[in-house]
Design a protein around this nucleic acid. Structure first.
Lengths: 211, 211
DNA sequence: TCAAAAGTGTTAATAGTACACCCATGA
DNA sequence: TCATGGGTGTACTATTAACACTTTTGA
C-alpha cells in the first residue's frame, strides 16, 4: 500500500456515446456541458467515476441517468489519456458506446439534461476530444455489425427489411444491393419473419423480428 | 475546475503485455511483483501513470524500462476498473500490448527486473486480473493478424516461411495447410523473398523479409 | 542411403457481387 | 390508373478449403 503513495491520483471520467436509429439515420445523444471549463459547449454524455463503483458500473449509471435504461448493449471503446485533453484539470476518460432503441428510452430524462440527437454523419463540433471518440466508436460499430446482430439493439421489436437495410447502410456508410442484402439476411437464423405487416406503405411490408 | 473537486481521484496504472516469439512459441514477458500487496506473485509489466505524461507515454516509458526499446508496435487494449481488482488500493489499470522482436531487446534490463518469458498457451497464474488481460490481448492479436502484417514486429529481419507459418499457428491456435498458407503469403506484397538461405535445415530454406 | 524439412498445383465449395423487372395497394 | 415502395433469381467472380507427392542435402 505504501508503495502506491508516491504516485499521483487522477480524476477519471466516463463518456458514453449513445447511438440511436432515428428518422432512418444513425444519431448520437449529446448535450450542453453543464460546468466549466467549456460550459455550454456540446459534449457527450459523461460523468466522473465514483469511489464505490467499478468503471463499468459508472458507465451504466450515467446511461441510466440520461435515458432511464438498464440492460443496454454497451461496450468499452477506449481510454483517452492525453495530459491536456481537458483544459480544466487532468482527467482520464474511459469511453463507452451504447446502442439503444429510441422508442424505449425516457425522453423526459434526456430533456432535463438538455440532451438532443444529432446525426452522426453531420456532427457539430464537440468539446475536447469528443469528436475523435465518436469517429472511433462509429468505426467499431461498423466492424461489429459485419459479424454480429447488434442491429437488434437499435431497432423496434418489429421492423421491415427496408428499415433494416437502411440501418446497415447508415452504419456502414455504403449503399447495399437490395437483393443481396435480403438474401444474406434470410441466411441468418437470428432474424425471422412474423405474420404482421407494416401498413405505412401501399403494399405493406412484412415485419421481421430478432429472435 | 471547482465542479471537479467533489469527485474522487484514483491511482491509474498501465499494464503492458509484451509478446515475443521465442523458441517457435508466442510468449509473454512477466516478472515478480516487487511490492505489496502480492509481492513476489507473477505479474505483467506495469507501473503508475505520472502527472506529466499521457497514458500512452506512460506505456511507452514502462516498455522502455523493461526492454530498452522505443518505437515498438503497441496498442491500447482495454481498461480494467473493478473496484476490488487490486486488493491493496483502488487502482484503475489501462492495458496495452506490445509486439517485440526478441533478438533486439535489452535482456540485461529485463534481467534486472527478474523478468522472464512464459508460453502464452501455458500461462502460470498471474496476480489480480492479469490472466484475463492476456487472454483478451491474445484474442485481439489473432483478429488483427488476419488482416494486418503485424508478424513483422515479432520476427527477425530474415525468416523462413516455415517460421512465419509457425508464428501464425501459434497466434491463431490452429494448424494451417502449408500450400494454402504459402499461396496466401505469396499474394501479399509486404513479404518478399531474398537471395539468402537459412542453413539450419538440410535442404536450406529461402529467407524472406517484410518490406 | 535415408531422414528431415523444403517446396509445389489442382479441384471443389463457398461467399460475394452485379444486375432489372413484376407485384400489391391506396389514393 | 398510376405512383410508391415491396418483393424476387441468376450468372459471374473471388476467396477459401481440401488434399499428396517430389526435391534437396547433411549426416
Amino acid at each position: 500500500m505504501t508503495a502506491y503513495q508516491s504516485h499521483p491520483k487522477f480524476y477519471v471520467s466516463v463518456d458514453c456515446i449513445i447511438f440511436g436509429f432515428k428518422d432512418s439515420r444513425l444519431q448520437v445523444l449529446i448535450h450542453q456541458r453543464p460546468y466549466e471549463p467549456g460550459m455550454g459547449e456540446l459534449s457527450l454524455i459523461g460523468g466522473f467515476v465514483q469511489s464505490e463503483e467499478s468503471v463499468d458500473s459508472s458507465a451504466k449509471r450515467i446511461l441510466k441517468e440520461f435515458t432511464g435504461l438498464n440492460n443496454v448493449y454497451m461496450q468499452q471503446l477506449a481510454t483517452y489519456g492525453e495530459v491536456e485533453r481537458d483544459p480544466g484539470e487532468r482527467v482520464i476518460s474511459i469511453v463507452y458506446y451504447a446502442l439503444i432503441n429510441v422508442d424505449n428510452y425516457d425522453a423526459h430524462l434526456s430533456d432535463i439534461h438538455n440532451a438532443k440527437w444529432v446525426d452522426v454523419d453531420n456532427l457539430p463540433t464537440l468539446c475536447f476530444d469528443h469528436n475523435d471518440m465518436v469517429q472511433q466508436a462509429r468505426h467499431m460499430i461498423g466492424e461489429t455489425i459485419k459479424s454480429e446482430p447488434i442491429g437488434s439493439n437499435l431497432l423496434p421489436r418489429y421492423f421491415t427489411l427496408s428499415l433494416l437495410q437502411t440501418l446497415y447502410e447508415s452504419i456502414l456508410g455504403t449503399s447495399i444491393d437490395k437483393r443481396n442484402f435480403r438474401r444474406s439476411i434470410s441466411e441468418k437464423d437470428y432474424i425471422q419473419a412474423t405474420d404482421k405487416r407494416d401498413r405505412s406503405s401501399r403494399r405493406g411490408a412484412i415485419l421481421y423480428r430478432f429472435k
